[in-house]
Structures are given as structure tokens and as C-alpha cells.
């Protein structure tokens, strides 16, 4: 899969990398059990600092999306690992976004349609 980052964006690079990998998994471009390149390889392919990639990997690990195995690198976890704590964390992260949507005047239906269309976009090319 292709990772595209914008170094001059307001979103920090490590967050962009993290988001792109999550999107890649959601789209089925990378599958559970596959491993990500080593920090060194990834950083040199992108031409960014190794600490930046390291930071994204740790963020992904904290979210339970990858497991960092010594020697074999970062492996994508299976979705069964989803649990209470991720649910609570996601709820907290959804809250401000949904609040903002309501504040700018989106209706309940519009928000739901938006969520559905994003999910459809992610899953449309999967079999």
C-alpha cells in the first residue's frame, strides 16, 4: 500500500502515518497478521526522522492495532482484540466531533449518512 504524507500540514507527521495505516487496514490493503516495514526502512523510504515513525508505531500499539514483536517487527493485530477500553476511548474521541457536527447544524440523519458513506467508501473494494 502507498502512504502519502504532507510534511507541511498542521497534522503532525507521526499522526498522518498512523491515520494512513489505520485507513489501509480498514480498506483491506493491509491484513491482520501482515507486518509493517521496520522503523528504519519506513523512515528512510519516506525520508523522515526515525523517531517520527517510531512514535506512530507506538501510537498504533497503544491503540491495540499492531503488536511490536522483537525481531519480527510490527505485526497487524486481529480485530477480535476489540474490547471495553477501546470502546471507551473511541467514545471519547467521537464526542467532540459529533458535538462539532451538531453545533454547525448537521441533523442526526446527516451525521448518520456521513458515517455510513465513509464506512461504505472504506469497504467498497473488499471481498
Amino acid at each position: 500500500m502507498i502512504i502519502v504524507i504532507e510534511p507541511d500540514s498542521d497534522v503532525p507527521i507521526y499522526e498522518q502515518i498512523c491515520n494512513q495505516i489505520m485507513e489501509g487496514i480498514a480498506r483491506g490493503q493491509i491484513k491482520p497478521g501482515h507486518s509493517l516495514p521496520s522503523v528504519r526502512v519506513f523512515a528512510s523510504d519516506l525520508g523522515v526522522n526515525m523517531h517520527t515513525v517510531n512514535k506512530s508505531y507506538h501510537l498504533l500499539e497503544k491503540k491495540g492495532i499492531i503488536t511490536i514483536v522483537p525481531k519480527s517487527g510490527a505485526v497487524i493485530s486481529s480485530p477480535q482484540d476489540f474490547n471495553e477500553s477501546s470502546f471507551n476511548r473511541l467514545k471519547d474521541e467521537f464526542k467532540p466531533l459529533i458535538a462539532e457536527s451538531l453545533v454547525v447544524g448537521m441533523t442526526h440523519q446527516q451525521i448518520q449518512n456521513l458515517v455510513t458513506s465513509i464506512i461504505e467508501d472504506f469497504t467498497k473494494n473488499q471481498k
Binding site: 502507498i2 502519502v4 504532507e6 510534511p7 509493517l36 516495514p37 519506513f42 523510504d45
Partner: peptide
Amino acid sequence: LKQVKVADLSVR
């Protein structure tokens, strides 16, 4: 123009 950097995870 948006300036971007890309990497291909499977190129290795």
C-alpha cells in the same frame, strides 16, 4: 500545489 512524500509499504 500540495507537497507530499510517499512510501510504498510493499516495495521491499
